[in-house]
């Protein structure tokens, strides 16, 4: 469902170590991936992920809304990472052989 450069995958990866609100996700993604998502792009990804049931809003009194990874989202992220790992292994092996 996601592509490796998909903002949705970056959001899932960001939420993998704990709940975060939008601004925290942008900062976190910039730290571990080097790309800064715009607010429109981030909320496009959040909308799709929430519709798929992969993330859910967390009850909060803060004006900033935190999100959490659901069990379904965690399984999907794991499946996506397996595919990515396979892709990385295959590409690396072929590069060495060439």
């Amino acid at each position: 469902m996601t592509r490796n450069n998909d903002p949705a995958l970056l959001v899932l990866a960001s939420l993998a170590d704990g709940d975060k609100h939008g601004y925290a996700m942008i900062e976190d993604i910039e730290r571990f991936y080097g790309a800064r998502l715009g607010p429109g792009t981030l909320y496009g990804a959040i909308t799709r992920l929430e519709e798929s049931g992969w993330i859910a809003p967390v009850q909060s009194d803060d004006r900033r809304q935190p999100y959490t990874l659901t069990a379904l989202g965690r399984k999907s992220l794991e499946a996506e990472l397996v595919k990515l790992n396979e892709l990385i292994r295959t590409a690396s092996r072929r590069l060495k052989q060439a």
Binding site: H21, G22, Y23, P39, L42, Y43, I46, R63, R64
Partner: peptide
């Protein structure tokens, strides 16, 4: 659904 929290994010950046 999302306007309030998007506004909050836009105030932070």
């Amino acid at each position: 659904r999302y306007q309030r929290e998007l506004h909050a994010l836009l105030e932070d950046i």
